[in-house]
Design a protein around this nucleic acid. Sequence first.
DNA 1: CAAAAACTTGACTAGTTGGTCAAAATGCAG
DNA 2: CTGCATTTTGACCAACTAGTCAAGTTTTTG
Lengths: 217, 217
Amino acid sequence: MAKAAKQKTSSGPEKTTRIQEINRRLILDAALDVFSTYGFRGTTIDQIADKAGMSKPNLLYYFPRKQNIYVTLLEETLTEWLAPLADIDPEGDPIEQLRKYITLKIKMSESHPEASRLFANEVLHGAPAISDFLAKHLKPLVDEKAVVIRRWVGEGKLAPVDPYHLIFMIWATTQHYADFDVQVRAIMGSQVGRPGFREQTAQAVLSIILNGIRPRS
Amino acid sequence: MAKAAKQKTSSGPEKTTRIQEINRRLILDAALDVFSTYGFRGTTIDQIADKAGMSKPNLLYYFPRKQNIYVTLLEETLTEWLAPLADIDPEGDPIEQLRKYITLKIKMSESHPEASRLFANEVLHGAPAISDFLAKHLKPLVDEKAVVIRRWVGEGKLAPVDPYHLIFMIWATTQHYADFDVQVRAIMGSQVGRPGFREQTAQAVLSIILNGIRPRS
DNA sequence: CAAAAACTTGACTAGTTGGTCAAAATGCAG
DNA sequence: CTGCATTTTGACCAACTAGTCAAGTTTTTG
């Protein structure tokens, strides 16, 4: 007598249909845009629904709470964001590895500024939604790479430098161009949009940081 | 028959009483705290009023609009924030001047993190309230200092470096410790609170940047 | 010390917004 | 083509919040 294959049990939706896949993506893309511009509190569900081209109740059919969209987006973004750090090769040439890392981060900052801003906004407000993620995923990864950098310093392949502060400096500098875009534009004006601006930025940042940590006689 | 000395004319409150001075300060201090944590939209007037120890209508007696408090706070903060940059002495020793500037910025980041966050949040969201200020006050000042730095490079006192990117790097790095405090804590843990942490930070940042821009043979 | 000015607040309003619900429309398996 | 599951939406509600207002209290001033 028990209704056998009913999916509406408390276990949640096991199967995702074609329509679900499309609409979830539509919602997340729209939400990234809006959240990154207005922040969590500053964003209304209606705004997201409008941009995603559906009604508010329909959106809530896919994500029952506003918070759900936000958290999904943050975790999705952060995972992608961390990949380049994980890719630093402990056996590679230190300067080369860091050059690659910085270059990649600047590229990401240019190609996905919304993701950078979404994350910046969350951390700025105390990371209420992702402090667990930071502790569980970010810290271990940074600790691991810090060991590598410290070894490089010990081997004389880098000038003596604190690994953590070096990593913070790279993050700060590269993300600055996404997060503070308005300020950069206010100061550098039309240069920002011009082709080659990213290369110029990368060149300047790389020059200072890499020369700053190159081993000195 | 015109009511002569009435102050309620459209010219605004010419005279500020003792009580006004105290209460405006109380409100602004409370508002900085709340705005920097929750952002403009995330902050309610009630929150500020509570923290300032007065009723909401009373608060609105001093600042008729929420926006007024916010803008006042931003402009007050920014002016103070820019002073150290203005203080860079074109006739001083380049490395020494920049060391002083960076050290001061790190100190400010530690002593007034809320101010840094308030500003970061505003710029992150497109600086809707202060884009004028950026164009009118920030840009000219930065342009002025860029000329100085460029001259220093020309005189061989600094390695060839783009002045704008150098300034951005200094801002990004120093403010990172205030704006991303939660992240820094998530990674470095209890070290952050310990005495001497600021000095350690300053040392690391100064070491990389100054060595990065020191003239090379 | 009385009157005017400045200050303070409880009670209220209008607008917004996150989320619900029941009913309709659509998709799809047999 | 039929019946069930999925998807979609208009109408609605309760909570919240910026700002108002009129009536009171305190401070200042002549």
